[in-house]
Design a protein around this nucleic acid. Structure first.
Lengths: 200, 200
DNA sequence: AGACAGGTAGACTGCCCAGTCTACTTTTGT
DNA sequence: ACAAAAGTAGACTGGGCAGTCTACCTGTCT
């Protein structure tokens, strides 16, 4: 009857949490000893739960996928839905954790190609597919110009984060989450994908 | 009267070229010995020309900045100009060299923050500023909607590469440079930034 | 010929790291 | 209470790497 409280008590949970932070802050090259020390656990205990550093890294990455997934709820009108999505998307990907995961995955993609593919398929790709599905519905309903919904989703997600992610990846995190940015991008997107009605 | 031919003969040039390839292919963690071997030069010769690995890395990065700079020539109409720019921009940033530089700079930005800032300011930032300047002219001439030219430049550059760069950074380089993509993005951009003329 | 600048090979220091092994201690289930 | 399971500390192996140093070689200029 181990408690299994919210703050993790078992060494395995402590190790996962510690490894998550450590890889995030120092990248894959952080040493096993530092991870074990951060979890307040002996090195051998780490190897009792994860058979190698690579295995631990894989577990951490798979656990991190959920933290970059974003959902939509298509309640209000299109603009309101996209504003909510845009704010959530930017919040997820531009906070320090999202930036660190992106940095680490990009840096280690050559060493862990399958893991990187899995991450990007289950994370950003899934998010974009959800958005595309919503946009397809809006196109059907005549609320958006009839176009390729995957292309439209690509345009919106790119516009929402591309430059600000770059700013965050170096250090210029100043006013990253300027709240007007999402609305500016969404309105720009809505102009580009407004329903065709003018034939002057 | 050393020849100074096109293929570099001096050990310094050979070292720079070798280090450029080596850092590109294996990242910063490539060993000094591998760089020296690739340049067919003794390790001590490397240290005679560059006083540390970090110094060599800095030289290579500074040399690489020009390879991600893109210019515009505003000859034809706006669409033709942007198509030419878009093709050049995608070609520069999505080829293996551009992707490798991006990966390395993102990965090493925490270790070399000043170098990373310098790179992104003199590279992508400069390119975007050139584009913004052109867009501002087009806005003045009434060929584009009057809006913030920096924001417009951000939208176009993001749309041109964000997702395809991600694809390239993992491995799915298949049909990255699909030639219709640039036109698709530019036409989408032109819809979003068409001059305002309709007040129905 | 001889001096000198610059290249070379390789040993060497000092450091860090992944992963294993051993002997010891604590926790836990019954 | 006791035995099995799980954790601990630390030594140890084997390897890699940055950077220094020494002794040697080669070309060039005079």
């Amino acid at each position: 009857m181990s408690p299994e409280l919210d703050p993790p008590h078992g060494p395995r949970e402590r190790l996962l949490a510690a490894a998550c932070e450590a890889f995030r802050e120092e990248g894959y090259q952080v040493s096993i000893d530092r991870i074990a020390a951060r979890a307040q656990v002996a090195r051998q205990t780490l190897y009792n739960h994860f058979h190698s550093k690579d295995a631990l890294f894989g577990e951490v990455v798979r656990h991190s996928i959920q933290s970059v997934l974003v959902t939509l709820d298509g309640d209000g009108d299109v603009r309101a839905t996209l504003l909510a999505f845009g704010d959530a998307y930017r919040a997820r990907l531009l906070n320090p954790e999202g930036l660190a995961i992106f940095r680490t995955m990009v840096a280690e993609a050559p060493r862990f190609p399958e893991l990187a593919k899995q991450f990007f398929r289950q994370g950003p790709y899934t998010t974009r597919k959800r958005l595309a599905k919503y946009l397809a519905q809006a196109m059907e309903a005549g609320e958006l110009r009839k176009d390729d919904p995957d292309f439209a989703a690509e345009m919106l997600t790119a516009a929402l984060i591309d430059l600000d992610r770059l700013r965050g990846l170096i250090n210029l995190q100043t006013d990253l989450l300027k709240p007007t940015k999402t609305a500016q991008v969404v309105d720009c997107f809505l102009r580009a994908f407004a329903p065709e009605k003018d034939t002057p």
